[in-house]
Write a protein that binds this DNA or RNA. Sequence first.
DNA 1: ACCTGAACACCGTTCAAGT
DNA 2: ACCTGAACACCGTTCAAGT
Lengths: 187, 187
Amino acid sequence: MSKNAREDILEVAKKAAQARGYGGLSMRDLAAEVGIKAASLYYHFPSKADLASAVAKRYWEDAAADLEKIWDEYSDPAERLRFFPVTFRRALENENRMCLCSFMGAEYDDLPDPVKKEVQVFADVNVAWLEKALVATGAVEPDASEARAKAVFAAVAGAQLMARSRADISLYDTLIESYRTAGLLPA
Amino acid sequence: MSKNAREDILEVAKKAAQARGYGGLSMRDLAAEVGIKAASLYYHFPSKADLASAVAKRYWEDAAADLEKIWDEYSDPAERLRFFPVTFRRALENENRMCLCSFMGAEYDDLPDPVKKEVQVFADVNVAWLEKALVATGAVEPDASEARAKAVFAAVAGAQLMARSRADISLYDTLIESYRTAGLLPA
DNA sequence: ACCTGAACACCGTTCAAGT
DNA sequence: ACCTGAACACCGTTCAAGT
């Protein structure tokens, strides 16, 4: 693919993990897609756990950068919140994939600790951004803003999961719109 | 365990699938826990897909029965809705397990078609019950009731997923309470 | 009717060996 | 520095064979 095998591995592994999770991520298949042998993977990453941890870390770093971009592009607090669900929509647009961290959240029991840690940072980053954005709208009581931010995150993740389980992206849009009608997200 | 091996298999497989999903369900481990050899599993079920399909079918049947019970036990529509999240809470109480169908929803790409079908029926059953209950409260416009029912289902599933990913059942309670404060569920 | 051992093609992982 | 083949203990599954 590119000149940098390590980059290729991370990229292909990310897409695979978004579709099949940690357990479903096959080192042999991954290697084949990158164009090397499975054993060669272990030159770049000491173990599957290390690889997945690096993938999850980059995943939340990219998410954080995306959220920063939304923040800077819009000044209206409600406008910013309008765009939050778009980042989760993109995974579904991308061949019905889902958030890597939602999938791995489900796999909690089988997740190596370093991976678990990065997965939780992803949620932390999203919740912190949402809380900041919600407080700025002034529509949420300050002492309820953290709980509300978590609620929005959980609900959006749930919408993505449900839409994926039907391979129906229009269902995702319906769900987000219902959240707005119900008052969970600003209309 | 019991006298009936088939029953034991279904029961143990259900708990395993709630913790590790379809992919994480190991026929060898399952057999060991039941007290037979892996090959013997294939006497009772022709394949892993058939076993998982039977498990998922029973799962939504049990869920439907639970919902019926809630419906009959309470006559106040809002009261009925108050108890909906309790069924999802029980999985978390049970050693941080989650809804089998949420997990398998994430595994969409690797799910055999018969399993996929049963998983979707689970969502259908829940959404139909929720819609009935929401309409009865009179608080939701009739032409928005289906979308709202789906939204509640997705949000509750998302709350369960997020709480599981932290092994924190109190987070689940916080999220459900936030849904009520926000207006997604009746307060 | 119900279960088993042995075999099949897979998997993640290791490691000594190649260039 | 980067990759590989061969081997390890696993996996789901099959099947002929046992009782």
